[in-house]
Amino acid sequence: MTPGATTGGSPLEQYVRSAVAAHRADRGALLPILHDIQATFGYVDPAVVPILADELNLSRADVHGVISFYHDFRKSPAAGTHVRVCRAEACQAAGAEQLVAHVKDRLHTDIGGTSPDRGTTLDQVFCFGNCALGPTVEINGRISGRVTPQRFDALLDKA
Results as ranks from 00 to 15, higher is better:
Met1Ala: 11
Thr2Gln: 14
Pro3Lys: 03
Pro3Trp: 10
Thr6Met: 12
Gly8Gln: 13
Gly9Cys: 05
Ser10Lys: 07
Leu12Gln: 01
Gln14Pro: 02
Tyr15Gln: 13
Tyr15Lys: 12
Tyr15Pro: 07
Ser18Thr: 13
Ser18Pro: 06
Val20Ile: 08
Ala25Cys: 03
Arg27Tyr: 05
Leu31Gly: 02
Leu31Phe: 05
Pro32Phe: 06
Pro32Asp: 01
Ile33Gln: 02
His35Val: 06
His35Asn: 08
Phe41Asp: 12
Tyr43Thr: 04
Tyr43Val: 06
Val44Ile: 13
Asp45Gln: 02
Val48Pro: 03
Val49Ser: 02
Pro50Met: 11
Ile51Tyr: 07
Asp54Gln: 11
Glu55Leu: 00
Asn57Ala: 13
Leu58Phe: 01
Ser59Thr: 15
Ser59Lys: 07
Ala61Leu: 10
His64Asp: 06
Gly65Met: 02
Val66Trp: 01
Val66Gln: 05
Asp72Gly: 11
Phe73Arg: 00
Lys75Ser: 12
Pro77Cys: 07
Ala79Val: 08
Ala79Ile: 08
Thr81Gly: 12
Thr81Arg: 14
His82Trp: 12
His82Gly: 00
His82Asn: 10
His82Gln: 14
Val83Trp: 03
Val83Thr: 04
Arg84Ile: 14
Arg84Ala: 11
Ala88Glu: 14
Ala90Trp: 08
Ala93Tyr: 09
Ala93Arg: 14
Gly95Glu: 02
Ala96Thr: 11
Ala101Leu: 06
His102Glu: 11
Leu107Lys: 09
Asp110Tyr: 04
Asp110Trp: 07
Thr114Ile: 15
Thr114Cys: 07
Asp117Leu: 10
Thr120Asp: 10
Asp123Leu: 08
Asp123Arg: 12
Val125Pro: 00
Phe126Leu: 13
Cys127Asp: 05
Cys127Met: 08
Cys131Val: 00
Cys131Ala: 04
Leu133His: 15
Pro135Gly: 07
Pro135Ser: 10
Pro135His: 13
Val137His: 01
Glu138Ser: 15
Gly141Gln: 03
Arg142Cys: 00
Arg142Ser: 08
Ile143Trp: 10
Ser144Asp: 04
Ser144Thr: 09
Gly145Ala: 09
Arg146Val: 01
Pro149Asn: 05
Gln150Pro: 03
Gln150Met: 08
Phe152Asn: 10
Leu155Val: 01
Leu156Tyr: 15
Asp157Glu: 10
Lys158Met: 05
